[in-house]
Simulated scan of single mutants.
Amino acid sequence: MTVLAPESVDLANLVDPELYATGDPYPVWRWMRDNDPVRLHAATQYPAFWSVTRYDDIRTVYNDARVFSSAEGILLRPLAHGKDPGGGRTLALTDPPHHKALRSLVADWFTTRSVRALEEAMRGAVRQVVARAAGLGECDFVTDIAARLPLYVICRLMGVPDHEQEMLFSLTSKAFGAGEAETRSIAHQEIMAYFLELMYRRMDQPEDDLVSALVNGEVDGNLLSEEDILLNCDNLLVGGTENVRLAVAGGMQTFLDRPADWERLHADRTLMPTAVEEVLRWTSSATHIMRTVTEPVTLRDRLLEAGDRVVMWTPSANRDERYFENPDVFDITRRPNRHLALGAGEHFCLGAMMTRTEMRILFTELLDSIHHIEQTGPAVPLRSIVVNGLESLPVRITAK
Rank of each mutant, 00 (worst) to 15 (best):
R396S: 14
N326G: 15
L390I: 14
L382S: 06
P17A: 08
Q205I: 13
E321G: 13
I397Y: 01
H371G: 13
V276S: 02
R309T: 13
G87L: 00
T283N: 10
T143I: 07
E120G: 05
M167E: 11
A21V: 09
Y323P: 11
R103P: 04
D261K: 15
W50I: 01
V248T: 13
H81A: 09
R269W: 03
I58T: 01
R335M: 15
L157E: 12
P47G: 03
T287K: 07
L75V: 11
V15L: 06
L237T: 06
V61Y: 02
V279A: 10
E207W: 10
S69D: 01
A80D: 04
D140R: 02
T314P: 06
D331Y: 10
H347E: 14
S173D: 12
T364H: 07
L303A: 13
L350G: 06
M272G: 07
L19H: 02
N232Y: 03
H347D: 12
G343Y: 02
M272A: 10
D64H: 05
P97I: 08
A213I: 01
P381I: 11
H339P: 08
R103G: 05
V215F: 00
A101K: 11
V310L: 13
L14Q: 00
M312V: 13
A344H: 07
T44W: 05
K174W: 04
S114D: 08
D95N: 05
D144P: 05
A117S: 09
C233H: 07
T364W: 06
G250A: 11
P47F: 03
L196W: 11
D16L: 02
V15A: 07
M32D: 00
H371Y: 12
R245I: 08
Q205V: 15
N216S: 14
V61Q: 00
Q189P: 11
I74C: 04
G217R: 03
T111V: 06
S384R: 10
G87K: 01
P96Q: 02
A21Y: 04
L79V: 12
T314D: 06
E120Q: 11
W109C: 00
L246G: 02
G221T: 12
E182Q: 10
M354D: 09
G86W: 00
I191D: 00
T298Y: 07
N235F: 11
D162E: 14
D234F: 13
Y26L: 08
